[in-house]
Design a protein around this nucleic acid. Sequence first.
DNA 1: TTCCTGACGCTCG
DNA 2: GCGAGCGCCAGGA
Length: 103
Amino acid sequence: MEKREIRERLRSKGLTEFQTEVLIRIMDIPKGETRSYKQVAAMVGRPGAYRAVGTAMKKNPMAPVIPCHRVVRSGGELGNYSAPGGTRRKRELLLKEGWKEEA
DNA sequence: TTCCTGACGCTCG
DNA sequence: GCGAGCGCCAGGA
């Protein structure tokens, strides 16, 4: 599925440009790697909007397509996860992708 | 239009 | 080294 197609689908879901951009950027995170909220915010050109990033993820209408579980808090914590399974599920997914919890 | 809330981060004590 | 408080941007009511 192309990003352009996903972007339009997100837009049709009622998400704003900012939220859409955030989710699109998250798809660029390599498998097995993670990025902090601040990193993601910087990716969309809003280094100080890390908090808004969390808001965007919470509204993620395409959880299976957008790896929002790859976005973690700074300091090594996983942070929160609203999808079924919660934080525990989030960690499971990351480990399955080869993510190193201690890294 | 204004105020409150939120899957957070950084600095100060 | 740990804990509390303040600041940040965007959305929703």
